[in-house]
Amino acid sequence: METVQNFINAYSWTNIHYLLQGLWVTVEVSVASIILSFIFGTILGVIRYANIKYVSAIIGFIIDLIRNLPLLIIIFFTYFGLPNLGFKPAIIEAAILAMTVFESMMIAEIVRSGIMAVDSGQMEGALSNGLSYWQGLRIIILPQALRNMIPALVSQFISLVKDTSLATIIVLPEMMYHAQIIYGQNTNYIIPMFVALAVLYFVVCYALSLIARYFEKRMSYSK
């Protein structure tokens, strides 16, 4: 009975409202990072695949280095390290910047492997039909690669949405941080808050994976 009462108290309108404010920041940071990292990730992935002398090797190394570092530490260094170099980002800028840098590397790796999985005969076909290498990549290879990559990309984006919670370390006012403040009022609110977090993250992430499944289906019909 006591537990039920805790849930009722924890889910007061003010608390829920506060939690949803956090959700909004989570969504904002996620959307910005998804768009930016998709763009940069694709570019980096293509360069990494294309085997341009030195450039591809160096980019490949940077990709490996950054994706192997814990995101938490990248966020931390972005916010506290960059001021040493003369650039002082606001908390939300630092969060988006760190997420974008990290996720671009993850996506670059997915894009590269997606391109590789497309039959190599197709490139030859494109070249012999008079397309240039870059045209072949853009018109023939990338669209097919993209279709194969959707599941991996979506998994990565789902991780991204949840990883925004790591930015609590620099006190980004997102959902996880707001939940912590709410259960700071009363230790009994912690389990209700964790349940609420699970539900809210699930809604956002599941919506993302539904959209992805829709695209995946639609694109495979056009096969």
């Binding site: 998994s155 789902i158 919670s165 996880m176 964790f194 977090l197 699930f202």
Partner: peptide, 19 residues
């Protein structure tokens, strides 16, 4: 798949730790 990849790892872990 949909349940476990869509809720935060921290929540799953906390469930095993405290519940």
């Amino acid at each position: 798949v949909e349940i476990f990849r869509n809720i935060p790892l921290l929540v799953i872990t906390m469930f095993f730790f405290v519940v």
